[in-house]
């Protein structure tokens, strides 16, 4: 049972990693990292139950918080910063520069 759950989580992690590697847009990669963090939380929770070290569940909860805050911070920066991958924002910036 635990092995099946672990394999399922690891396969999902692999899929998220593949999306982070290939992902054509910025948002694909952000979603992939967020999902990878969620899978890490799940993996730690399964491992905690399997190995009987239930104190690891606290760590999993803290991971979920860090993941959430981190993605919010990344999204804010993407909204306000220019990451050279969005042609529209670059054109806008060039226009501002020429004015």
């Amino acid at each position: 049972m635990y092995i099946a759950v672990t394999i399922a989580i690891l396969v999902t992690m692999g899929l998220a990693l593949a999306r982070a590697l290939m992902g054509p847009t910025v948002y694909d990669r952000i979603a992939a990292v967020n999902m990878f963090g969620t899978k890490t939380v799940l993996l730690i929770a399964v491992f905690a139950l399997f190995s009987g070290r239930t104190d690891l569940l606290d760590i999993a909860l803290v991971y979920a918080l860090i993941n959430f805050i981190g993605v919010i911070a990344v999204l804010r920066l993407v909204e306000h910063g220019d990451f050279h991958s969005n042609p529209e924002s670059r054109a806008k910036q060039d226009k501002q520069g020429s004015e």
Binding site: L21, V26, R29, V33, F36, L43, I44
Partner: peptide, 30 residues
């Protein structure tokens, strides 16, 4: 692509944190 590399840094860090948890070093993983 520098943005993609930074996102992969995040994944790299989560992976090593997971490994630390499996090796029973929960504080290091945290």
């Amino acid at each position: 692509n520098l943005f993609a590399i930074i996102m992969l840094f995040g994944i790299f860090s989560l992976l090593s944190a997971g490994l630390f948890v499996v090796m029973d070093a929960a504080d290091v993983a945290f």
